[in-house]
Amino acid sequence: MSELKVVLHVSEADRWHAALGNLANIVQHAPQPETRVVVNGSAVYVLQGQHDQLEHMAKAAAKGVAFQVCRNSLRAHDIPEDALPDWATVVPGGVIALAEAQRNGFAYIKP
């Protein structure tokens, strides 16, 4: 069996609770699958400030989860890239990041 790879797609701010639940379950899996979270749409709002959801994301990032944030969505919502946590990586487009992940064998999950 090949190594499991998972990409979570979070595009709405109100879906973070479900996404973080999925992410917690994935991170607890042994061995942990290679995991990416692609963030676009209104979900980018949640990547600012200080709150408990960001703490959960930071812990997941520390365990190797990659967070990819859509530059187009940041621009559309007037969020500067430097407002993001240091563990978040800005990608040119969220939909392209999703397509690339799927091309590379990642299972797509939309919480």
Score class of each variant (00 low, 15 high):
residue 18 A to L: 12
residue 97 A to D: 04
residue 54 L to I: 03
residue 54 L to Y: 13
residue 46 V to G: 02
residue 9 H to I: 00
residue 27 V to T: 13
residue 44 V to I: 03
residue 53 Q to K: 12
residue 43 A to C: 03
residue 65 V to R: 07
residue 52 D to E: 11
residue 37 V to E: 07
residue 9 H to Y: 13
residue 67 F to Q: 04
residue 35 T to L: 03
residue 70 C to D: 05
residue 87 W to N: 06
residue 77 H to Q: 11
residue 96 I to W: 04
residue 46 V to Y: 06
residue 73 S to F: 12
residue 22 N to M: 01
residue 46 V to A: 13
residue 43 A to D: 04
residue 36 R to K: 15
residue 69 V to W: 08
residue 66 A to C: 03
residue 86 D to P: 14
residue 43 A to T: 03
residue 21 G to V: 06
residue 23 L to S: 06
residue 10 V to N: 04
residue 80 P to K: 08
residue 71 R to L: 09
residue 55 E to A: 13
residue 75 R to D: 14
residue 83 A to V: 00
residue 103 R to S: 11
residue 65 V to H: 12
residue 17 H to M: 00
residue 63 K to F: 08
residue 35 T to H: 12
residue 77 H to R: 15
residue 76 A to P: 06
residue 80 P to D: 12
residue 11 S to W: 10
residue 82 D to L: 03
residue 13 A to H: 14
residue 63 K to C: 09
residue 15 R to L: 10
residue 83 A to N: 13
residue 53 Q to G: 12
residue 47 L to F: 09
residue 70 C to W: 10
residue 26 I to T: 03
residue 72 N to R: 13
residue 11 S to E: 14
residue 12 E to F: 03
residue 22 N to H: 15
residue 49 G to E: 07
residue 68 Q to T: 00
residue 61 A to F: 07
residue 59 K to H: 14
residue 44 V to Y: 12
residue 80 P to A: 06
residue 61 A to S: 14
residue 32 Q to I: 04
residue 20 L to V: 01
residue 68 Q to Y: 10
residue 28 Q to T: 03
residue 58 A to M: 11
residue 45 Y to A: 00
residue 78 D to F: 05
residue 37 V to C: 04
residue 75 R to G: 02
residue 27 V to D: 10
residue 51 H to R: 06
residue 59 K to E: 14
residue 16 W to K: 01
residue 72 N to W: 10
residue 103 R to P: 01
residue 26 I to N: 11
residue 44 V to M: 07
residue 50 Q to A: 11
residue 30 A to E: 15
residue 42 S to P: 15
residue 74 L to F: 12
residue 66 A to G: 01
residue 101 A to P: 05
residue 67 F to K: 02
residue 33 P to I: 01
residue 17 H to K: 12
residue 72 N to Y: 10
residue 58 A to P: 08
